[in-house]
């Protein structure tokens, strides 16, 4: 630890937005340079200000699951271009770029794993892939994961990170809201818990479907969560939005989420909660 502090004291004092070498990341909130290794060890939470940095789906499951426990199930379902959608570029070109960037066919990673020993089925949306937008593949993989959880008799944990439904698949994207809801019915019918974790950001059609019908809704500190985006609201009402509007703490205050839980506590929180709901013996963490 002493060595650690020594390195921290020598943190480079960079200007906001300045390029940092690969070893360092600038915290978007406090603008301090943070040693990447510190971030990795701290679930990508800024050790200085507590800001929760965005995670891609792979990093998310590393934080959430016991090391080495993840068995991937998603990945065989790939997107197509059902409408021949072209805006500033063709949809397939957009997809190819996002696939290359993330190494995933679409904005979702699902599978099974354990949380402090408790088996779960998980789905993590990938904001790094096209803003985590929900098209047919995201809907299908979430539906399959929920159905797997129901079949295998495990709890289902979903981490939302999405700007909403994917415009390039138009009404097909919209219908994923109903499709995922249908698939989640199996869990309810079998009395299996479904927990959703809303991370930064969770907006649009994701907020208006599977993410908010969970048995327990957890939000990450500071996460932007809402249906309409702040810009759209501002354009409609033409006044400034209140401080903290649509942030996790705001939603907790308005009764929309069950708890705001620090990412570093997610595993112990989920293990204890799911242990009670599935009548498992208490884990070590809850001793």
């Amino acid at each position: 630890m002493a060595l650690d502090r020594f390195f921290r004291r020598r943190r480079p004092q960079q200007q906001a937005g300045a390029e940092l070498p690969d070893l360092w990341t600038q915290c978007p909130q406090c603008k301090e340079g943070v040693y990447n290794r510190d971030l990795d060890l701290n679930a990508h939470v800024c050790p200085r200000c507590g800001h929760h940095l965005r995670l891609d789906a792979g990093q998310r499951l590393e934080v959430l699951l016991d090391p080495g426990s993840f068995q991937q199930r998603s990945g065989r379902v790939h997107p197509v271009d059902p409408l021949g959608f072209e805006d500033t570029e063709p949809y397939p070109a957009r997809l190819a770029r996002a696939q290359k960037k993330t190494g995933r066919p679409d904005a979702i990673l699902t599978g099974t794993g354990t949380i402090l020993g408790l088996p779960v089925t998980v789905a993590a949306m990938d904001f790094a892939f096209s803003g985590g937008s929900m098209g047919s593949v995201v809907g299908e993989e979430i539906a399959r994961a929920a159905e797997h959880a129901a079949g295998a008799g495990t709890p289902f944990v979903l981490v939302a990170a999405s700007g909403g439904a994917r415009m390039q698949e138009s009404a097909l994207s919209l219908m994923q809201m109903a499709k995922t809801t249908v698939a989640l019915e199996g869990l309810a019918e079998r009395g299996l818990p479904y927990v959703s974790i809303l991370s930064d950001p969770t907006t649009g059609g994701v907020t208006a479907s599977f993410a908010t019908i969970a048995d327990v809704i957890v939000a990450e500190p500071g996460a932007l969560i809402g249906f309409a985006g702040p810009r759209v609201i501002q354009q409609t009402i033409r006044q400034n939005l209140p401080e903290g509007f649509q942030r996790a703490e705001f939603l907790l205050e308005h009764g929309m989420v069950d708890a705001v839980v620090d990412r570093r506590e997610h595993r112990t929180y989920l293990r204890s909660l799911l242990g009670v709901l599935t009548r498992q013996p208490a884990g070590e963490a809850s001793a």
Binding site: M177, A178, T181, V182, E185, T207, A208, S209, F210, A211, T212, I213, G226, F227, A228, V232, I233, T236, I237, L241, P242, F245, Q246, F250, H254, G255, M256
Partner: peptide, 25 residues
């Protein structure tokens, strides 16, 4: 759905999701 401050405070997304789920059932 209406994009307003109060709509968000009262859980616009939650209400829509609930209605979809109620129709499914």
């Amino acid at each position: 759905a209406y994009p307003g401050i109060e709509a968000e405070e009262r859980g616009q997304g939650w209400a829509i999701a609930g209605s979809i789920q109620r129709m499914v059932r």
